[in-house]
Design a protein around this nucleic acid. Sequence first.
DNA 1: GCCGCTAGAATATGATCAAATTTGGCGCTG
DNA 2: CAGCGCCAAATTTGATCATATTCTAGCGGC
Lengths: 232, 232
Amino acid sequence: MTQMLKNSSQAAARPSGKQPAHLTVYENLRDQILFGELAPGQAVTIQGLTAQLDAGMTPVREAIRRLTSDGALNMMGNRRVIVPELTENGVEELEFMRKSLEPQLAGRAAQNINSQDLEALKALDDDLNGAIEMGDIGAYLTLNYRFHAMVYRIARAPIMAATVDRLWLQFGPSLRVVCGRYGTLNLPDKHADLLDALSNEDVEAAENAMLGDVHQGMNQIREALRSATMVN
Amino acid sequence: MTQMLKNSSQAAARPSGKQPAHLTVYENLRDQILFGELAPGQAVTIQGLTAQLDAGMTPVREAIRRLTSDGALNMMGNRRVIVPELTENGVEELEFMRKSLEPQLAGRAAQNINSQDLEALKALDDDLNGAIEMGDIGAYLTLNYRFHAMVYRIARAPIMAATVDRLWLQFGPSLRVVCGRYGTLNLPDKHADLLDALSNEDVEAAENAMLGDVHQGMNQIREALRSATMVN
DNA sequence: GCCGCTAGAATATGATCAAATTTGGCGCTG
DNA sequence: CAGCGCCAAATTTGATCATATTCTAGCGGC
């Protein structure tokens, strides 16, 4: 009897073919956090996201819940959700875990890589260097993540890769702070070492290159964090 | 087909203190997975949970999404959600990560423990041994998890603890299979070694005890899995 | 300065729409 | 004539939304 009429606002919520809206929102919000578009400590509101992404409330809620379990968002006791701020202890935990896991993934990638994957990685690294030259921080962050993510996919260890992804979500917001402070990085390029090791299928060299890359990255975050806390 | 399905599980779903429903459902479902009440490969339906837990659709949905990001549930391409089945490769990944992280947590716990924590741990271990004597698999699984979880809380490394929790969610469903096959475990008790190490604040001994415990546990899972796949 | 009050945001519900699996009927082939 | 497989209706399940309810926080009166 009650003739509810349906508005046609669903088109914008589902832009990409058939993917569920909650997945689209999840990926979008995830990228925003991962690439530092949301600053640490910033509040994330449901209604803000429904407006920004032109999505319904339910998909937004689900995305926020997932990212909460991902460690990318923190639910405060009172219904508020924020992007967590990284503490010094947090950096140490993340560094230990990254150093424990990511070299292992790099080593496995060296065992499993084929020429097609290697070409794709090299192309990605070229783009990455281009972004560094241009000083495009956004592109740098995105490509750097995609480079690592591809290495981990090649490693064919999905559980470990997902675990490491979770770690990236927690230092991602701080990475942009680092870049804002120091500009794009001008340290010895560990990606080149890693690519060499992968093309030689040299497991140990790949592990070492990745270890160095992680060490460098976490050191920069630690330093940026330390000088930031001095200001406060 | 009337309301006769409402049993004690409903009461647990609604302590109705002040906690939001989606959190209650999340914890309930999480425990069901962690303690093997849901078998690997089993489908998890949203409407089934709304009926079982007497909860609304939205909270159930959010709980399922969170557990998806926790790795405790897998979204199949076609909207279905199941408890993932552990593969042999998965066991190896989990074993590597657990051996990399959990000894570190045990070592940190040895550095930070106080007498009150130690007493609580000992009490938990007593209950655990009691459950083993009684052959109460459910209590054994629960107490074993709570013992480890308390050690990790003492370690004061929340990010690492959350990461390890995520791993437990992925081999939890298989643990009950192990127990169903071998009964409660009758191997050398690594918990006693760990308690000794913690009370002496001996970091290295704590790390070794935890390493042994993890090794034992994952070996049992691997063997149970191997003999199970032979049957199929 | 403290306490109730109001505004606004988050939580939760049930209805509605859409997709996917299941089922049942039909034709085809041996 | 019987068995097999395939297409389509039906049912089950998931996705989304609009709305009612509940809680937090800010604010004005006392």
